[in-house]
Nucleic acid binder design. Structure first.
Lengths: 110, 110
DNA sequence: ACAAAAGTTTCCATATAACTCAACTTTTTT
DNA sequence: AAAAAAGTTGAGTTATATGGAAACTTTTGT
């Protein structure tokens, strides 16, 4: 495990990538969340899928699409719609949350 | 203000709606974030736009689209792509974050 | 080293998101 | 109460996301 603290519930995707999600099998962790930047959404899907021990084909079956479609989503070959994102993560029993944060300072009225 | 605590940095969209974002002008708050559920993304855009004191037309100009397009986005007439979401919030100088949380328990391997 | 499984890529069709323009409605201002 | 500003709606166009099928490549297992 990359982190020292056992109370760790949040991790970035980079952290995830670093330690390779596949290897992490600590059973104490029954629920956690991690953030992601938009560009890495595909990696996000892949990570969660792996965590669920599913192949692209199996995930595809859950959703009702071919494995090639899953591959495309994971590899970010297209700009993706919200509906698709939700569909995928719903199948993976994962909740998606969006958050928006405003940095007041940076905005100047024209 | 709907909340008692001044350290409040997180609020749901429902809370936002309740108190009408337009009225909230407390200057102490230089940066905050709130979550949103997918279905209310349009409201999210509207709220942030209002916070920025922009009209739909002005926001449209920033992005390079007509005000009617902004209206449609705010009114959730369509399923929207990530690119569009990012484009809008980027114009509003707001950072979007997606987070995914897995609920281990709910998943059963078939 | 071979076979099987998993993942990727290309070509293609179809559905729909993104967008404009113009007319219309609602809200705000004076 | 009128005018102006802001927001909404509908019709139509264009770009592109979704998806399938099949061949291909990479990885994993034996």
């Amino acid at each position: 495990m990359a982190t020292k603290n056992k109370k760790m519930k949040m991790m970035t995707l980079d952290q995830m990538k670093d330690k390779d999600i596949g290897k992490v099998g600590t059973p104490e962790r029954d629920k956690y969340e991690f953030e992601l930047r938009m560009e890495v959404l595909g990696d996000m899907i892949k990570s969660v899928r792996k965590e669920r021990n599913l192949t692209q084909e199996q995930l595809g079956e859950l959703i009702g699409v071919q494995k090639s479609q899953i591959s495309k989503l994971e590899r970010n070959t297209k700009n993706v719609t919200i509906e698709t994102i939700l569909k995928v993560f719903r199948a993976l029993k994962a909740n998606v949350r969006f958050s928006v944060e405003m940095n007041e300072s940076e905005f100047k009225v024209a």
